[in-house]
Design a protein around this nucleic acid. Structure first.
Ligand SMILES: [Mn+2]
Ligand SMILES: [Mn+2]
Ligand SMILES: [Zn+2]
Ligand SMILES: [Zn+2]
Lengths: 142, 142
DNA sequence: AGGGTTTTGATTATCATTATCGATTGATAA
DNA sequence: TTATCAATCGATAATGATAATCAAAACCCT
């Protein structure tokens, strides 16, 4: 199902309303580069809809997380970042401490070992974070 | 080398002073249960040294991180947590979202795959975070 | 012991996030 | 279409963890 439909159904199911702000925020978020902060999205939205409020962007991103369209990330710079969830795929991140570049990686063998670790402790995984911090190739050779 | 000595040398090398507060904070930190917040440590310290300031505890923990005695962790509850670094060993964490329990795990095969991932991207790892969030065995069966 | 520097501890500032609230809007039924 | 009313918006204030400030006190070296 399309994300716009998922969001719409989610709103209806929770007795919430579809507003032009919510539609615009979803649309802009999906079209945005990944890992955008609230501020990033807010500034981009102001160009189309100059009266939109920061609080509305913030609240709507939380809704997008709640209905599974977005995922919230924290890469240690004090700003929450959001990226669209891709169905049937999961990735983690390499974060350059110098230039801020974010590289995505998938490693099913790590995911599998993770599950083994959890099982060994009778632990039920709901989510996880796996981030490698350091220097990207460009920054390392300077 | 003992941690007290490491800290002392670190302070000397940076032209900083050894104070009774710094000694007491190190001592209490090392004797503390792991993963304590600044507040945890502050309250414990007030029992021995009722005039110690929150800012001093905060600043000293940063120094302990800087000289490699402590490591700072963030488990998503909005409070930084600190734990003593154990030489020649590294671990990551399972965090129970229900009761807050923190379980440590070591999995060298994950660490190795991590290094492979970094190498494939010409990425130089400085540090990493790997946390599994979910329910501990106790909380899962409720 | 004296003097220059660092540190302490109380307080304030910062800043991202969250809550508040009057004005406005969306959804539903008449 | 219009009335109704709860949900929402956007501006602003509150919150809370962390970091900065600064005068008084402590430390260290001569
Ligand atoms: Mn990503
Ligand atoms: Mn630990
Ligand atoms: Zn870089
Ligand atoms: Zn638990």
């Amino acid at each position: 199902m399309e994300q716009a439909q998922v969001f719409s159904d989610f709103l209806t199911h929770k007795g919430l309303k579809s507003t032009i702000q919510r539609k615009l925020i979803l649309e802009t978020f999906l079209a945005s580069r990944s890992h955008c902060s609230i501020e990033d999205l807010y500034l981009k939205l102001r160009k189309k809809h100059s009266k939109i409020g920061y609080a509305t962007v913030h609240r709507t991103l939380k809704l997008l997380v709640e209905c599974g369209i977005a995922i919230e990330q924290h890469f240690g710079d004090g700003h929450a970042r959001y990226e669209p969830v891709r169905e049937n795929s999961h990735h983690d991140h390499l974060v350059c401490r110098e230039c801020g570049e974010i590289i995505e990686f998938e490693e099913p063998r790590i995911e599998q070992l993770q599950n083994q670790v959890a099982m060994a402790h009778n632990f039920t995984i709901i989510s996880h974070r796996h981030e490698l911090y350091g220097l990207c190739s460009g920054c390392a050779q300077k």
